[in-house]
Design a protein around this nucleic acid. Structure first.
Lengths: 151, 151
DNA sequence: ACAATCCCCAGTAAATTACTTGGTATTGGG
DNA sequence: CCCAATACCAAGTAATTTACTGGGGATTGT
């Protein structure tokens, strides 16, 4: 039940982008460096994020990435589902139609459990916006963690 | 973020055991057959469940498994954590001490997100007991799904 | 022109998953 | 007392997934 690096790195990268977004486009290299991530791996993540319109890109020299919308309109759920697919604990309760029905075509008790877990997760991630994370970050950015963290 | 078959099969098997528990010990073969699971794979799961005292076993002929406690004292969380390990979305917020700190030794915004997801999941699974699932099952066991489901 | 950047596709080593196989130990019933 | 049924144990393994890397190509400001 762990998130893969796609989701974990992706959220970090998106927050980094969000924090620097008002200074104009941000190049992937700088995100990778600040966050200690591989630039070429991030390229793949941003390709998916772009397809989902969570980021916009400017090509060519002086290019870079921008948020696709205002930070208050982008949720952690948007980002994680884009990168990880459905966060449902079992295919039979995933939001997209992909999850085929389980062999038990009738009533299934455990299915109810998976639904409750899925809803519990969604209830958390769909109610945290990037803006809240930016605020958290700024409220805690002091000399100490400027040395080791973002910024 | 999907559960592995350990957790999915394990919960199904434990519910099957719980439903049949008052008839005395239950052999793994019958659980495997009713639930359409591999008996030898279930052996591994029950070894772990026994170590966690969620089931008791009787060896030899006429042996089998029994719940380790009353169904109202066993939660879905007990079962899933035994079989899956911590359900935290990232190592840095797993309940057991195993999860080493992330590279950011200071304040970490995303860590807060992982904690909230973890707590959301735990809040669901620690508040569903086997007894509730048995009740769900019995309330829905009619002729139709007796033909295809458990019992 | 050219350097910086995004973009795209394919490959791959390592880890994990989902089992299977082949045994051994224990016990109740005939 | 034997034997069939059961739990218990350790290893192996094929398939899948993960977490990247590499090699290019396309676009654009200077």
């Amino acid at each position: 039940m762990k998130l893969s690096t796609k989701g974990r790195y992706g959220l970090k990268a998106m927050l980094d982008l969000a924090v620097h977004n008002d200074e104009g486009q941000v190049v992937l290299k700088s995100i990778a460096e600040r966050q200690g991530l591989s630039e070429s791996y991030l390229e793949q993540l941003f390709a998916a994020l772009k397809r989902a319109k969570l980021v916009k890109s400017l090509r060519g020299s002086q290019g870079g990435y921008l948020l696709g919308d205002k930070p208050e309109n982008i949720t952690v759920g948007d980002i994680l589902r884009t990168l990880e697919g459905s966060l449902a604990p079992a295919d039979c309760v995933s939001e997209n139609g992909e999850g085929h029905m389980c062999e038990n075509s009738g009533f299934c008790v455990t299915r109810g459990v998976w639904e409750r877990i899925r809803d519990g997760i969604n209830n958390v991630i769909d109610n945290i916006t990037l803006q809240e994370l930016i605020d958290d970050y700024k409220a805690n950015s002091n000399v100490d963690n400027d040395l080791i963290g973002m910024h």
